[in-house]
């Protein structure tokens, strides 16, 4: 198995709160990797540190054999890591198609001069961007809404659009932050199919999720965070029986929520 991402001793502190302490984990190429844990365990913080939205206090990420830049989201995307957000963050005034086209930004080159003169390269690139964006909409199954302004899409379709936009950056690792949140059973089942398809197409997926059934049915391996620490990492069946994990989820008297 080839290692795609290795997190080494990642730490992040907010004022008096140690959101992540010494978290190390390894994601292998081609797998679906789940990151679970109770509310406030530090899962989203981990995403934010990984994707450069926050700067970690300590530790480093090694991606594809070399270190990731810290605190520079656009460079992380360039290296091949894309993400979605827990609370959907689309470009609300753009259509579905334009959202995905915007996602191609980092893989395209047209600059001001090309745009102003509309030279051949720019025109061709623009046409390709449109076509690829449309293909991606098809891929996630919402191509019929290509021309709909994204704020008017239904919740489930917005989730799909956000995934399509992330895929447009041509990632090797797709990090999904609670993709099934707020979805009904049918939508969740469809989402599961979509994620499996993405994996088949060779993209590694990292997943934060609360829906235990989804995680257990989908993930090859799972890591559990609690109070910013990794308390377990293994295949789902093993993790499910881990005492520390059970204690963390049942509360164990340490915290109530």
């Amino acid at each position: 198995m080839i290692t795609l991402l290795e997190a080494r001793n990642i730490g992040k502190r907010f004022g008096g709160l140690q959101a992540l302490s010494d978290v190390s984990l390894t994601i292998r190429k081609g797998e679906v990797y789940g990151l679970i844990g109770p509310n406030g365990a530090g899962k989203t913080t981990f995403f934010n540190v990984l994707t450069g939205a926050y700067t970690p206090d300590g530790g480093e990420f090694v991606f594809n054999g070399s270190e990731l830049p810290v605190g520079k989201p656009h460079k992380v995307v360039g290296r091949g890591i894309a993400r979605t957000f827990q609370n959907i963050r689309l470009f609300r005034e753009l259509t579905a198609l334009e959202n995905v086209m915007a996602g191609h930004h980092i893989r395209t080159k047209a600059g001001v001069w090309g745009v102003l003169t509309q030279n051949r390269f720019t025109r061709e690139e623009e046409r390709l961007t449109t076509e690829r964006a449309y293909e991606l909409l098809k891929y996630v199954g919402i191509e019929r809404f290509a021309e709909v302004v994204s704020k008017n899409l239904s919740y489930g379709d917005q989730r799909r659009l956000e995934i399509a936009r992330a895929l447009a950056t041509e990632p090797q690792l797709l990090a999904l932050d609670e993709p099934a949140a707020g979805m009904n059973a049918t939508e969740t089942a469809q989402l599961k199919l979509l994620i499996e398809q993405i994996r088949r197409d060779g993209i590694t997926v990292m997943l934060i999720e609360h829906d235990v059934k989804l995680v257990m049915g989908l993930c090859d391996r799972v890591a559990v965070l609690d109070f910013g620490k990794k308390i377990a990492e293994d295949v789902p069946a093993v993790v499910q029986r881990n005492d520390a994990v059970i204690a963390a989820y049942l509360g164990g008297g340490k915290h109530a929520h």
């Binding site: 957000f85 047209a110 745009v115 992330a166």
Partner: peptide
Amino acid sequence: RLQISRVGRAWAAMRDDELAAKAIGIN
């Protein structure tokens, strides 16, 4: 021309949600 282009979309993306714009690789 600027509006209907990679540049215009990047601006609009930044305007609508700066954090998400960064997350798709816009500088």
